[in-house]
């Protein structure tokens, strides 16, 4: 086994996904199969290989420090499932 049900449950918590026990079990099997397949990467010696984060070598993409007007408040809140006055409203945090 590459991954256990307990690890899957931990990952589901990190990812904020409420999973049923059946889903945990199903994902454990599927992720295990995928990870077993992915394991073939370890056939390769990559000790001296630089990791690639960007395929096109580039850098220093910046903009000037200039202010634009933001979005009108109606548009800020238009898609929100919960609002009050000018705020997004969520279940109480603490």
């Amino acid at each position: 086994m590459k991954i256990t049900g307990k690890e899957v449950a931990y990952v589901a918590h990190l990812a904020r996904l409420a999973l049923s026990d059946e889903e945990i079990e199903q994902f454990t099997g599927q992720l295990d199969a995928i990870l077993a397949y992915v394991d073939k990467l370890n056939e390769l010696d990559t000790e001296d290989v630089e990791p690639t984060a960007h395929v096109i070598p580039m850098g220093n993409v910046v903009r000037e420090d200039a202010v634009d007007t933001g979005l009108p408040i109606e548009e800020v809140l238009a898609n929100a499932p919960g609002t009050q006055d000018r705020f997004f409203r969520v279940p109480r945090i603490i």
Partner: peptide, 24 residues
């Protein structure tokens, strides 16, 4: 005013992208 200095980028709307402020 609350949420008065916001735009799709700092609101984290889908598909928007960050561009770095040079002065920072």
């Amino acid at each position: 005013p609350p949420n008065g200095h916001t735009c799709p980028v700092c609101l984290g709307m889908p598909g928007v992208l960050p561009v770095l402020n040079r002065e920072v």
